[in-house]
Design a protein around this nucleic acid. Structure first.
Lengths: 245, 245
DNA sequence: CGTGTTATTGACCAACATCAAACTTAGTGG
DNA sequence: CCACTAAGTTTGATGTTGGTCAATAACACG
């Protein structure tokens, strides 16, 4: 595995650009943030539930998820995070963290001290708004997931998630036109959707049989975006990405 | 029904106090906010999914919920809101709203123009932080719900929700020591938990049979808080309320 | 008192979970 | 380049939680 170094600041800028307008002054401010980059292997928790943080974690490269354990040892994945995301930005406002944050693939993260973020926010109200907007969109995604997990059958639920991941990756330039790579196992998919791995597997086969998705390995493609959207009862407006499809 | 007039500003102050410290200067700022109070009947939507807002809605009196409809006409309740809550504070940052906000009981709300909130935030960074903190806690509650709906069996799920509602009401001085009034139907409970009304009914009976809860009508009491907490696998830290139990 | 809403029951069914085994695939070291 | 291994996927058999439908009983309110 070659160790490719990514530019954390550019990732953050790009992430912010995918949800709003970043002035060049704000761009400069973002670039001025101190970042401690770190490589992490696959399936490694960067933050653990209950911890107290003094830094925020920026996803630079790879695929991350927030997750929580419940009573019986079952796991719920709460969200997925792509390069440019600041999954624990709220740690600035909440003294302890209510979930774990872990990598799904071999990845790179950057840590940014709370103090530095606060300073940057003091200097730019527009950037503050953009950060706040990011946490609001995060929230909006939770609402979409909650509706899915609470009320949609497995078939729709998977299709909906695929739509969401595609739109988000697309907005970051991480997906091609007709598909995307979802580098996670079916067990992890199940943990995100509130389903068992076996049921995910069977439902995935149904989706393929119906031609809604065409997958090989971790690549998931589709022939007909409208069809996939319909299968997932998906409306992208909750993602608030610029340049929606 | 007598029309009792509540003081909206006091409710908001109290709501903020339940999650953080409010300086007297900030208290004054909050009191200076212009509020248009309005009475709403039970089961009435104050905000509809897809709308564009120019005001935030403050819950002054009564019980509210955010909700969404999915494909088959099923409904998912996304959150409950008590007096002092600003359920759509994020509308300041998101141009359209991704859920409906409705009353469950006869209630009162107050509308506060976005512009007024923005002005107040410009004047006080501490108040800004507190508002932001409120949206972060909102998010944290979504994560707890998602874990519940995704991975907990009905019995635990109901107990967990009861714990949450109790702690939140308690923090606002709206619940007595041994119980609380949850003014909603079993159908609505089901919509919040991702369960059918029938199953809610049966599971509630189990909880009563086990002595975990003691309910009559809409009053829900418990003899043993520790027992209820355990039944719901509940840890209140995600609520970030001051003066936890 | 009626009338409409909510709670409760029963009978039955479907979606999804669990368990365990077999089969694939990708990665590793020789 | 091949064999070996571990991880992930697929399959089958079977069980369970929770859904649906429909009827009845309790309430709440005018």
């Amino acid at each position: 595995m070659q160790l490719q170094v990514h530019k954390p600041h550019e990732r953050l800028v790009r992430g912010l650009q995918s949800i709003g307008t970043v002035s060049s002054a704000d761009e400069e401010l973002v670039r001025s943030l101190p970042m401690r980059v770190q490589a992490v292997g696959a399936h490694h928790d960067v933050v653990r539930e209950g911890e107290r943080l003094t830094e925020c974690c920026l996803v630079v490269e790879g695929f991350f998820c927030r997750h929580k354990l419940v009573d019986g040892g079952q796991r719920q994945i709460l969200s997925f995070h792509l390069p440019g995301d600041l999954p624990d930005l709220q740690s600035i406002h909440l003294e302890l963290i209510d979930y774990s944050l872990g990598s799904l693939t071999a990845s790179q993260v950057a840590f940014i001290p709370h103090a530095a973020i606060r300073q940057v926010m003091l200097r730019s109200p527009t950037l503050t708004d953009l950060f706040w907007r990011a946490t609001c969109i995060d929230s909006s995604i939770f609402r979409a997931w909650l509706a899915s997990v609470g009320r949609r059958p497995a078939y729709q639920r998977i299709a909906h998630l695929y739509c969401e991941v595609f739109v988000r990756m697309r907005a970051l330039g991480l997906a091609e036109d007709g598909g995307f790579v979802l580098p996670i196992t079916q067990t992890e998919l199940g943990d995100a959707l509130g389903l068992s791995a076996v049921h995910v597997n069977r439902t995935l086969q149904e989706l393929r049989r119906d031609g809604v998705i065409v997958s090989q390995g971790r690549y998931n493609g589709f022939r007909d975006w409208a069809r996939l959207q319909k299968a997932g009862d998906f409306d992208p407006s909750y993602l608030f990405t610029k340049g929606a499809l």
